[in-house]
């Protein structure tokens, strides 16, 4: 059977497929180490050195430094591994939802509540 044909894009959504998994491998590998306290400490002690250790591209390193979730996703970041990075910073999924949609956190939370009405 042939692989699926090109699918109609879903606005505001990146499908994390093989191409994205290749593009983001180093970035996601770094984020995977944030499961452990040792990885988190080493990153926080010297962010540039830690990004270099994993061979992140300049775009990925910039997105990490700026905590820019949309740029991290564009550069192959996978939300489940990025969640380790986000969690380490003390942010939750409403915080990054607000960042990605250009809303305040309160506005974003209100949007979620409104979905129930």
């Amino acid at each position: 059977m042939e692989p699926a044909k090109t699918l109609e894009p879903i606005p505001g959504t990146i499908i994390f497929d093989g191409a994205m998994a290749v593009k983001g491998y180093a970035l996601n590998k770094m984020c995977y180490t944030f499961n452990g306290a040792a990885g988190r400490q080493e990153f926080l002690a010297d962010e540039d050195a830690y990004c270099a250790k994993f061979g992140l591209t300049p775009e990925q390193t910039k997105a990490i430094k700026e905590r820019n979730v949309l740029a991290l996703l564009d550069n192959g970041g996978n939300i489940y591994y990025l969640a380790k990075f986000i969690g380490m910073l003390g942010l939750n999924v409403q915080d990054i939802g607000a960042q990605q949609t250009g809303m305040s956190v309160e506005e974003f939370k209100a949007k979620l509540v409104a979905a129930g009405h």
Binding site: G12, I14, L70, I79, L82, I96, Q100, F108, G116
Partner: peptide
């Protein structure tokens, strides 16, 4: 639910 992208916060009751 959707966590990632500009479409974050999408819910379809």
């Amino acid at each position: 639910h959707q966590l990632d992208g500009q479409r974050a916060g999408f819910i379809n009751k």
